[in-house]
Structure formats: C-alpha cells, structure tokens
Amino acid sequence: MKELFIKETITYDGRQLSSHWAYRNFGIQGESIVSFRGPCRVELTEMVDIKDVLSNSPIFSTDMLHFIIEHFDLDLEKTIVRQRLLIATLKDIITEKSGAVLSRYGDDLFFQNRKLTVSIATLTPVSTMIHTGVNVTGKDAPVPAIGLAEIGLDPEEIEDVGRSLLSEYVKEYEQIKMARCKVRGVR
C-alpha cells in the first residue's frame, strides 16, 4: 500500500471519491492512502451518505486535514471495518499529540460533544474508498464542531497528525496481510 502527503491546498468536494483518483491525479497506482489539507464543501448532489442527503445536511468546513483511501476489493463491509480502524488509530494519534480526551462514536470523533471528524466508506465499480476529514477549525461548520487547532495543535503538529496516520494505517494494513500468512488452517 502506498502513501502520499500532499503539501498543496486541495478543496474536498466529494468528487475525489472515484476509482483511481490517486492514480489519475498523482500517479499512485494500486492501494493507497493520500492526505492533504484544505476546505471541505460537499453539496448534496455529490454526497454518498443517503442519510445526510435525506436530512438535507451538506458537509462544510473552512479547513480540514483529509484522507482518501482506496482498496482494490469490492467488500464494503471490510472497508467499513478498515474505516473504524483508521478512526481508532487517528484517535490514538491525536490524543498522544494533544492530550485531548476524545470520544469515538462509530466512524466519528468528538471532543466535549463537538464533532471533530467526518468520514464515509463507499464502493466504486472496481474498488472501495474511504474519505475522512478532520477539522483544523470548527469555525462556520453546520454542526457544533471543533478543530485540531482549537484543542491545542500548532500547524506543524497538525501536519504531523496527517503524516503519522498515513504511516500507521499502512503499517496496520501490512501487518494484517502478514497475519493471514502465518497461521495454519484448522478443520
């Protein structure tokens, strides 16, 4: 699995959840996790979470740390489990760097009942994908939100959260693949 941290600002608008996004835009062929920072503006027409569409809840943030993951299998349930692993790992990293006591409910992180993340897992014709966005600031969000800056992380530490999650997710993924290969079958 390949990882890439992009230094330039990119606005996440939902169109990044399309097969081969990392390959088409950055030459990364195969399974990947890509991180970048930028605003988030997902209109209802681009949303894949039908619950949010039905409740007329567009996603917006002025500044987020984004992660786009693509796995080339078609098992959405497995990808949702991967998404939960990503969020649990993210929680550990943020807690270690900030000392903040975070709560995890499903695929979202909260600090003092304010939402820190958004996340979705979906299926494409050839792969499964995950998007997770972590608020850098909760300012102007459509729900009670908080950001990494508001829990005490400076810009360098915020970038380090991104880079750490990239490497930890790849490490977990590779270890899971190796764990499959070390056991004998039972009857």
Rank of each mutant, 00 (worst) to 15 (best):
T11N: 02
V170N: 08
N56V: 13
L148K: 03
V53S: 06
V81M: 12
I120K: 09
C40F: 08
V42G: 04
H20D: 15
D160W: 11
P142T: 13
E8W: 09
S35C: 08
S119T: 10
I151Y: 00
E46K: 14
G138L: 13
I130W: 04
I176Q: 09
Q112V: 12
P125K: 08
Q16M: 10
Q83L: 14
Q112N: 09
D92A: 12
I176F: 10
I33M: 04
F26C: 07
E172I: 15
L116W: 09
S55Y: 11
N113G: 03
K97E: 12
K115H: 05
L65N: 07
G152S: 06
E159R: 10
L116K: 06
L54N: 14
S61V: 01
Q29C: 10
Y23F: 15
Q112I: 11
R37Y: 07
I94L: 03
I176Y: 11
S35Y: 01
G106E: 07
E174I: 04
I6K: 05
C181K: 15
T117C: 04
V136N: 05
Q29L: 10
Y169S: 10
D52K: 11
T128D: 05
L123G: 03
S98D: 04
K171V: 01
R180N: 14
L86Q: 14
Y173F: 08
T9Q: 10
V53H: 03
Y12L: 00
